[in-house]
Amino acid sequence: MKPAPFDYVQAETLDEALAVLAAEGSDARVIAGGQSLMPMLNMRLARPKVLIDVMRIGSLARVDDGGDRVVVGAGVRQAALLAWPRLAAKLPLIALALPWTGHAQTRSRGTICGSVAHADPSAEMPLCLIALDGEVHLRSARRRRVLPAGDYITGMMSTARDDDELIEAVAFRVRPGRGCGFREVARRHGDFAIAACAAIAHADGIRLAVAGVADRPELRDWPDLEGDALDDALNAFAYDLDARDDIHATARYRRDLVRQIGRDVIDEARRCRV
């Protein structure tokens, strides 16, 4: 269980990384924290010709608090964001969800952007990015573009990133006064979510985003539904997600969780709405 051969570039500048990406395209793979990519390399599921390590690019290792948005660079490890003193005030949903991402030993290495890049359908950070109307800042030697998270993640581990692009940063919208709630059900703490639910309660209504059920995180916006109306909306959402059976849970179970946990996190979000 050893990786297939690859070249390795420890980029010191963004331009250096982008030049290799431009030259190698889909044969190159960016490695940041490596907590998703390395197992794939070890199992030989992924066999890039060259690995571009971006963790020594100083400009990427920043959390920029831009007031109405927080921009998290590609070099920011999950543990670093979790330790950011303003996290709970600025991005309370991330503060709730990030402890569910892996374990302390993987958060210490894994990055926020790496998790978004990987686009695992169960992962918490893509879920939060979608729930918070986040953006993905893509960069290549030829251009710079910003995609809404919903456009970036196209399916299971599939994204709109072009082969010569890398994620430079992800940006989360900061919206004071909104309440949020998060809960996840997994076989064990730290496992891939069977269902993860993130809720936002704002002045005009509620939002529920769900990971682990469909091929990618999905969300619904509703007015401030209550009672049966909310149950019906949750039920319709649960079915729309087209859950499947796997060895850890049945489709029915996943729908049950969307109905039940979805309601719980919406209630939680409403309780902390200002």
């Binding site: 269980m1 050893k2 390795y8 420890q10 490596g34 907590q35 390395m38 197992p39 070890n42 199992m43 690995l51 390590d53 963790m55 543990a79 374990h103 302390a104 030993q105 993987t106 210490s108 290495r109």
Partner: peptide
């Protein structure tokens, strides 16, 4: 396990916990 789950290979890199099976030797230069 060589896929980052069992934790037996955990070391400290620059004072943080790290799976040494999910880290390349070249990365710790």
């Amino acid at each position: 396990c060589e896929h980052g789950v069992c934790g037996a290979c955990t070391v400290s890199i620059d004072g943080t916990m790290a799976r040494s099976c999910l880290t390349l030797a070249a990365q710790v230069e």
